[in-house]
Design a protein around this nucleic acid. Sequence first.
DNA 1: AGTCTCATCTTGTACGTACAAATTATTGGC
DNA 2: GCCAATAATTTGTACGTACAAGATGAGACT
Lengths: 358, 358
Amino acid sequence: MPKYMQLKQEILTWLDSGRMKPNERMPTEHEIAALFQISRQTVRQTLGELEKEGRLYRLQGKGTFVSQPKTRPFQETQTIGMITTYISDYIFPHIVRGTEGALRSRGYSLTLSSTDNDKNKERENLESLLAQPVRGLIIEPTKSAQGNPNLDLYLSLQVHDIPFIMINERYPELHCPCLKVDDESGGYAAAKHLIDLGHRNIAGFFKTDDLQGANRLKGFIRALREHQLPLQQYTVTHYTTETKSTVPYDAALSMLRQQERPTAFVCYNDELAVRLLEAARQTGLSVPDDLSVTGFDDSWLSTATEVKLTTLTHPKTDMGVRAAELLLDLIQGRVEDAAKDIVYAPELIIRDSTRSLL
Amino acid sequence: MPKYMQLKQEILTWLDSGRMKPNERMPTEHEIAALFQISRQTVRQTLGELEKEGRLYRLQGKGTFVSQPKTRPFQETQTIGMITTYISDYIFPHIVRGTEGALRSRGYSLTLSSTDNDKNKERENLESLLAQPVRGLIIEPTKSAQGNPNLDLYLSLQVHDIPFIMINERYPELHCPCLKVDDESGGYAAAKHLIDLGHRNIAGFFKTDDLQGANRLKGFIRALREHQLPLQQYTVTHYTTETKSTVPYDAALSMLRQQERPTAFVCYNDELAVRLLEAARQTGLSVPDDLSVTGFDDSWLSTATEVKLTTLTHPKTDMGVRAAELLLDLIQGRVEDAAKDIVYAPELIIRDSTRSLL
DNA sequence: AGTCTCATCTTGTACGTACAAATTATTGGC
DNA sequence: GCCAATAATTTGTACGTACAAGATGAGACT
């Protein structure tokens, strides 16, 4: 931690502990520099920040003084903001339940908003939250593979000292803590499972406007390459949020009607897997007899279908709980910003939607 | 005027005149220093202030960039609180999505918390929200059939001029607006449907710690009485939140194993209906051949099962949207507190889980 | 075409020096 | 004891030097 930040923490301790009273004169810049064996300029940088934040006031030639505390009638409940892409019944309720429960048990409240996976709405959300007294943020990135035009607002969060963490993925140019699934190893495991079952003609469908999809695809391709399996033109179907209702379904129908059709599908998530079960049904194919299908996330969909899906797990509630705990640790200064990420290893859950060709 | 302030004025001229566009890279610190014949440290002081003020953002090793202008004037976001019983993947995400979308499009944010259907936690939630600057509340009552020990806090809301509405049910002693389903007519319609199909031995299962269940039971009984059907000892099974995993299932098993067993079940909701499909399966009975089953709420469960459920609808997202709109009308004084409730008439959706005996 | 290494560029941290500007303390004269 | 002048103290401005850390681009290699 930079020296000017360490000094800041120390001075904040003086202020918060009551050791320095309002309007009391602080030690001079020279004295503080000598006390901590640092340069006067470094001290000035620290004092400058505390002044900007309203904790101190400085008078040229006179000294540096402690500001009066803001008068507060009672201890306000502190609020944590959560930005999600969708409020859906997929896996979102589990994550939010985990977070809300963890926050409530520690006296925090939760503000929830969604971006509908749209960068402009993400911007509006961030601006809205910057205008509120939120203590920290848990953010699910919006189309994480499509850059970050709202980087200025994320940097604003840092400037305003609003800690935030990210879940499911993180914008590459940000360095906040992140909780996510090892998507590449999940993609690999799904493909490997099918290869082990004897499948050689495997098609993958990935929503690549977010990094999760991009990483799952990466793992998928790596598994095929390691087993010297050919990458045909249709082996990978890319789609985006906007085309998720049409592109993968149509592509699946098309390839299933070919003479040399795939014997297995690796899907970006359970939602798509269920939808492609329907595509198989429509072309007269039976799952898993004629076509094996895998999903991701182990959502309620994976066991709601007639054919229970083979899928990769997602931590869900635990991610929500640990996200809240990690953010509160950041807020309360118990960890440094560069705290280690939490990366969940997805576990392959083998159910009834995959079958051996051997 | 200090050089760092002169430079700041100059740069603000660049920004305000449109000469520098959002996300455009500024000249480097070195270049600015050369341009103005001042030191790099002086430049850094200026850029640091502009960063704190949100006009620029800086990336180590990359450059200094112009921030996006705020998309709307600095406007404090007002917060609406929502108290739900559970954050689950049942129908809750639909309601919340409707509410959050409606609020966000009107410049409000949403704070979410849950009571886990527990009166003590309801109290904690209310106290927490009373300590926050929320503008209004949308509340799902907790065990609405078991009185209201937290009435004092609801009166506090009124004293503090915090408008609130209720969804799904309302505590009888409160007079806030309410959005709900006509549960009694739903219970009646489910029973009537089965009677019309020729069923005469119908069992009902109702969670009666909330008024929804109590009202559904009321309709169920009214339908049987109107058709002179006998009310046997087992015709009605009551259960509560705490016993929902055991009492109805065990009761169903017990009655299905009797000689004179029921030929139809009316269930409190889809969640129970799905569970009792399993009870039928366990006693070797086929749905709907041997046993007809109905649910409530038309949740994702109703079509996820192998046998698609006959069920009654719940407005879900529309309830969330209209709840938000109604509350904002209250807040903005466009309606009086005793505004009319919104009562949805449930629609019977006939699917595959009910069969005629005729 | 992709990857790796290395040089260069750019911001970030830290320190030292020098002087300006405002305030306070000391000293000498009356 | 009071007052003016001066010195000392303290914050403010400015600059220079050095190195760290992150990003980028060129070139070599596969």
